[in-house]
Amino acid sequence: MSGRPEKTGSRRLFALGALAALASMQAAGATLAVTVHQRDGHPLSGAVVTVEALSPALAPPAPVEAIMDQVQLEFVPDVLIVPVRSTVLFPNSDAVSHQVYSFSNARRYQLPLYRGKAHPPITFDQTGVVTLGCNIHDNMLAYIVVTDAPFFGRTGKDGAFGAGDVPTGRYRLRVWHPSINEPEVERVVEVSGDRASFEIALTRDLHPAPLTGRPHSWDY
């Protein structure tokens, strides 16, 4: 995300160049590790972590072209994180038609009924969480998190999210997950040196996760 200075070494001075490169990489920033724990201490996987730069301000990440598919009456992935101004394509891998909508403030839209050929991609130019639904299949649910943070990602099974080359500075860590039962989970941190690790513990129990695995012939 943040630019990495180019190596300046030459073939003849390979060792020196490598050393210089190493030095400049260290100067480029820290390796950031954020681990999210549930109230009971278990790691929270799948949580969205965004790292907003407070000072110095960093340029927002470049927009991307992302995909939110529909497979066996489910959105895939269930949570998509994209930089602001990114475009998202909504293909439909199911044999049946879908009608995707959002009435979230961050992006209201609706994709007329379709199957097979996808509609033109949708641009998400406001930050926030966009909740997706299908007007034909009421159980379908997914989220698109639109962010202007220079670093972002989802926690793994161990509850950990990592980012490299984070310049020294002050950042706001935000954690979001559809099951989090508290209004804002955020923390302002100072990052310096070559490693910075933070633990974030939720203070309330999670909401129950959506029920999964029911046969598709069940209506609701």
């Binding site: 038609s97 007329p112 009924l113 379709y114 097979g116 050929k117």
Partner: peptide, 8 residues
């Protein structure tokens, strides 16, 4: 024209 109007 949008297609995908077939019945399930």
């Amino acid at each position: 024209s949008v297609g995908a109007r077939g019945a399930d």
